[in-house]
Design a protein around this nucleic acid. Structure first.
Lengths: 161, 161
DNA sequence: AACCAATGCGTTATGAAATAACATAACCCG
DNA sequence: CGGGTTATGTTATTTCATAACGCATTGGTT
């Protein structure tokens, strides 16, 4: 992954069993409140994101989509991703062309990630863009969304090799 | 462009004539200092970025590459872009799949942009990530690069329609 | 000068990521 | 039930990016 240290895979454990079901249920509930529909493809893609150990590429999702091994058609997944992003259930990581489930509650139009170039994990954190944000608005900009992506090495990969 | 107001094109004027030559010369000088080589393809791509009125897509650069109208081969341009980014002469805007010349002096590993979803301009600004940066390092991360992309409407597009 | 390692380039081909366009189906609401 | 709206299925295509390989140029070394 750019810098090379050779960890097999990521440190970000995916959800399973009850935790997974509960996360999906929470999304369901939120949807109901806003009269949005968590349809089967949307639910399925959300599940895949939640189960994953790290950021998922769109074509990983496409390949993993069918429980029977049948891939999805690209638009199915891209449309679901668009929905999940719109509702704040998922984020796209631009510098990775990949997607993660949102791990911050009450998120809105901002997302920030610490991306490990060794193990590939992407940890979401609460940014506090207040200063930049204010500066932009002062300059006359109407900011709608902000994304921040910091790349480097996570504690585990920094320490080890 | 997502939000629709119908300005023909961007408000970010490209360089030409003496200003262009001088910007290229400055890059040349910087390269010499670090024993890097601003070879013809690299110089050409830098010129194209500097001349442009806004972010350039890779395939725009490919198409515009030859003075005679001959396009470049993709690797030519992608390799040049890699070089220009490495030296801080250009930035990739992830959320646009596009490239801009660096407009901040003495830049390093960080870049921040205000991207207008109407007219397509991308204004670089000085971020001051100190707080986020410090927080990340405190959490044990070794941050190498940071990019921030704020999307919204520029003053011109916000005001008009 | 002759050599050699390192870097960059040209070229062909292919891989990966995302969307256009259009037909069909399900949902909501009056 | 009728009719608008939203979502899906499907085919094809477009857009973005890199692999792989051989040749050329550079710059240092003997």
């Amino acid at each position: 992954m750019g810098v090379d240290c050779h960890h097999t895979e990521s440190a970000q454990p995916g959800l399973e069993g009850a935790a997974l079901a509960s996360a999906v249920a929470a999304a369901e509930t939120k949807c109901e409140r806003t009269r949005e529909r968590l349809t089967p493809p949307r639910r399925r893609v959300l599940e895949l994101l939640l189960e994953a150990d790290g950021p998922m590429k769109a074509y990983d999702l496409i390949a993993a989509y069918g429980q029977d091994g049948e891939p999805a058609k690209p638009p199915t997944v891209y449309r679901a991703l668009e929905f999940l992003e719109r509702l704040g259930f998922a984020h796209r990581i631009e510098s990775l062309n990949a997607y993660v489930p949102c791990r911050m509650e009450g998120t809105s139009h901002r997302a920030a990630f610490l991306i490990c170039e060794c193990c590939g994990t992407a940890e979401e954190f609460e940014p506090d863009f207040a200063p930049q944000f204010a500066a932009a608005e002062a300059a006359g900009y109407a900011v709608r969304t902000v994304t921040l992506e910091a790349r480097g090495l996570c504690p585990a990969c920094k320490g080890g090799a």
